[in-house]
Each structure stands twice: as structure tokens, then as C-alpha cells.
Design a protein around this nucleic acid. Structure first.
Lengths: 118, 118
DNA sequence: TAAATACTGAACCATATGGTTCAGTATATT
DNA sequence: AATATACTGAACCATATGGTTCAGTATTTA
């Protein structure tokens, strides 16, 4: 049986699957921000934004630090190296598939068969 | 020219957030496979595997074709270009943040403050 | 024609997600 | 001291996810 374990990628890809969270990363790339400021920018309750930040923190994409009553968020040191590596390694597989001869053959066979399923 | 509408990053990052689905992509990189074969490899029911394939299909990462009673799965033409581009563009933001001077300053300030929250 | 194979669909389950409100606590500010 | 600000936590809600079983349908194969 083929098993693939890589919890960090689970968490970071899941974190990146939400447009608000990608927006937060975008924003933090332009400068650190408090949770309140981010909540205002994304028109969301403080509590809602806090949850997004927690997801990003668990994924290691964002780190926070509370000073006084303000929690400041910034991009995490971890970066997106592991994600970039996975994607790049697998892009090659995608490309390799389409250089293969059987690709052309299977394209030819497609006529008359159920291409898209139910 | 054929145009491929790249489904939003939401779908592909969500698809990639599951280790089984990353494994399926890995496997399809080594050759096309039926749903039954994948279900066997990943020790899962046919129905369970079918759902994973549907998620990958909606994200455009896998295409399937049914011939006779067998549905064959292969890597989609779309590839991982959009995802790679997003990641690469944002890696730069992460790196830029850590070149900044305020990074060093904030690291120094961290002593004695609530680093990790609740 | 009968039986095996490969998939499909519906229903169910436990847990997670993305959001909210409401009620706190801790920290400034006046 | 009183008020305002910034966050925290619990509870709730609707929907999605990752899996299952069970009951089909369609297509080989014997």
C-alpha cells in the first residue's frame, strides 16, 4: 500500500485554499498588521479573523506576537519552500505525462466514449 | 487555440491538502490507473476513491474517461502552473519581510511578551 | 444466460470549516 | 475611576469533508 505522510503540507495547502487567507498573506507581505486591522480590511468580525489567523499560524505561515492589548501578525519564517518544492516536483510529472505517446493514442480513442462520467 | 479555464485556486489547494490525493497525483505521474486500482493501492473503498477523484477532477488536476466499465484516471492538462505562480510570487513576499530591519528589532522585543497567545 | 467485475448513487456518520453573536478579560486612555 | 479598545472563548449554525455501507446499473466473461 502506498502511504503519503506530510502533515505540514496538509495544513499549509488547506490554509491556502481559502481566498481570505490568501488575501491575508498578501496583505502581510505589505506590512505587519493587528487582528483588528485585518478584520476591518476584510470586513469580518474580530473573532472570525482570529480564526483565520489561527489556521495560518498552525500552518506556520504566520506568526503573531501580543504586545499590550494588540496582537500583531506577520509572515512566518517557514515561508512556502516545502509547498514550492512539492508543486515543482509534481509539475514535472504533469508535463512528462503529456510528452508520452499513449497520450496521443488515448486522445484518438476518446471519440464516442463517455468522456466526463455521470 | 484551446483554452483551459483554470478553476480557482480554492479548489486546487483544497484538493492538494489531503495526503491521499497528493498520493494519487504522485501515482498517476507513474501511469494512468482505474479507480479500482487506485482504491486497492490506497486501501480504500471504491466509493471513497471515487470521491477523491471527483475532488481532483473538479480542481482540474485529473481527467477521467470511461471505456466499457472501466474509468481510467490520468493527470489533467491544466497542470499546476497557476498554483506554482501564486506560490512563487508570494515566496518573494516572505523573503522580503525577513530582509527588513524591523524584523530584527521585533525579534529583540520578543523577550518577556506573550509570544504564542492563549 | 448466468455470474463476476467496475462503477454509481444515496444515505449515513463524525468531524472540520467559516462564519456569527454574546459575554468576558486585559490594557490603554481620559 | 470610568470608559474605550483589543482581544479571547464558548456556543451556535449551516455546510463541507473523508470515510463508510448498501443497493443498484452497465459491461464483460464464462
Amino acid at each position: 500500500m502506498v502511504q503519503y505522510i506530510s502533515p505540514p503540507l496538509d495544513l499549509s495547502f488547506a490554509a491556502l485554499s481559502d481566498p481570505t487567507r490568501r488575501g491575508i498573506i498578501d496583505q502581510l507581505g505589505r506590512g505587519d498588521a493587528s487582528i483588528t486591522r485585518l478584520a476591518d480590511m476584510f470586513q469580518m468580525t474580530l473573532t472570525g479573523m482570529k480564526k483565520h489567523i489561527q489556521v495560518l499560524e498552525r500552518a506556520g505561515l504566520v506568526v503573531t506576537q501580543k504586545v499590550g492589548r494588540v496582537r500583531t501578525c506577520k509572515l512566518g519564517k517557514r515561508g512556502l519552500k516545502a509547498e514550492a518544492e512539492w508543486i515543482e516536483a509534481h509539475r514535472k510529472l504533469f508535463e512528462a505525462r503529456f510528452d508520452a505517446l499513449d497520450e496521443i493514442i488515448s486522445e484518438m480513442k476518446q471519440e464516442g466514449s463517455d468522456e466526463s462520467g455521470s
